[in-house]
C-alpha cells in the first residue's frame, strides 16, 4: 500500500464541491475518488458542466473542496494555508492554461523560469536547455510573448510547467485556442515529456483527438466519474462520449 501511495502524483478521495444551496444547489463534484500515477499522461474528459475543470482546480490547489480530500504526493491540500498552497504550487505543480499563460512584460525565458525565480532558487540550467531544445524555441527565448505566435506561446507555457520539474503538471484545455497543427505539436511535446523525461501530466480536454495522446482517460459527467478508458484512441473516446450524450 505504501509503495502504491508514493507512486501516486495526485489523488482525490470522496471529493465533493457544492455551489449554492437549496433549490439552486449545484454539485460540481459528487463524491469523486480518483488517483493519478506518476510518469503517466492522463486526460480528464466530459461534457460542459461535468465538473472536469473543477476537479482539476481542486487537485491543483486552486480551489477548495466542500468535503473530501485531495493530495499532491503525500500532502493533503485541505490542511494547508493559503501561503503554503502557493509555495506548493511553486515547487510541486506545473500549469498550462488554455490562454494567457505568459506575463507580457517578461521574455519567454523569464516566463519559463518564473516559478523558480519567484522562489529565489536557481534553475537547473542543463535541464532548462534540454527543454528549450525539445520545444524547439532556442531562438525565441529572448522575445516577449507579444512577439510569439499562439502555438509558440503555449510551447513556452509547457516549457515553464516542465522547467521546475514539478511532481505533476495540470493542463487546462492547452490546445483549445490553437489550430490543429499547433495543437498536435503541443500534444506531441507533452507526450514526449512523459515518455522521455518521466513527467506526470493531467490534462483537461473535450477534444477526443487530444485525449488520444494520453495513456488513460477519466470521463466525468454530472460531477461523477462515469468511465475510464485505457490506451485510448480518438475513436474509442469519441464513441464513449457519444454514448454519454445519448
Amino acid at each position: 500500500m505504501t509503495t502504491t501511495m508514493t507512486n501516486l502524483a495526485a489523488r482525490a478521495a470522496g471529493a465533493s464541491k457544492i455551489y449554492g444551496s437549496g433549490d439552486t444547489e449545484v454539485r460540481a463534484l459528487d463524491d469523486v475518488t480518483v488517483a493519478f500515477e506518476r510518469g503517466r499522461f492522463s486526460a480528464i474528459m466530459g461534457p460542459s458542466g461535468s465538473g472536469k475543470s473543477t476537479l482539476m482546480h481542486c487537485l491543483a490547489g486552486l480551489d477548495d473542496l466542500t468535503s473530501g480530500s485531495v493530495y499532491i504526493g503525500d500532502t493533503e491540500l485541505g490542511s494547508l494555508s493559503e501561503n503554503d498552497l502557493t509555495l506548493l504550487r511553486r515547487t510541486s505543480v506545473g500549469f498550462v492554461f488554455q490562454a494567457f499563460n505568459l506575463i507580457p512584460t517578461l521574455t519567454a525565458r523569464e516566463n519559463m523560469v518564473l516559478p523558480m525565480t519567484l522562489a529565489g532558487t536557481k534553475p537547473d540550467e542543463a535541464w532548462v536547455d534540454q527543454i528549450v531544445t525539445t520545444v524547439n524555441l532556442a531562438d525565441r527565448m529572448d522575445h516577449r510573448p507579444s512577439e510569439l505566435s499562439g502555438g509558440q506561446q503555449q510551447r513556452v507555457a509547457v516549457a515553464r510547467a516542465l522547467a521546475s520539474q514539478p511532481d505533476i503538471i495540470f493542463a487546462d484545455e492547452p490546445t483549445g485556442n490553437l489550430d490543429s497543427r499547433s495543437g498536435a505539436e503541443i500534444l506531441n511535446f507533452m507526450r514526449n515529456a512523459v515518455d522521455d523525461l518521466g513527467q506526470t501530466i493531467v490534462m483537461v480536454t473535450h477534444d477526443p483527438v487530444a485525449a488520444a495522446y494520453s495513456d488513460r482517460v477519466v470521463v466525468l459527467a454530472d460531477g461523477k466519474i462515469v468511465d475510464e478508458i485505457l490506451e485510448p484512441t480518438a475513436d474509442t473516446v469519441f464513441d464513449k462520449l457519444k454514448a454519454l450524450g445519448d
Partner: peptide
C-alpha cells in the same frame, strides 16, 4: 487581473 492570477497560480505569494 488575469496576469496577477497567473502569477499567483505559478507560485507568487500574496506577499510577493
Amino acid at each position: 487581473t488575469r496576469e496577477i492570477g497567473l502569477l499567483r497560480a505559478v507560485g507568487m505569494t500574496r506577499r510577493q
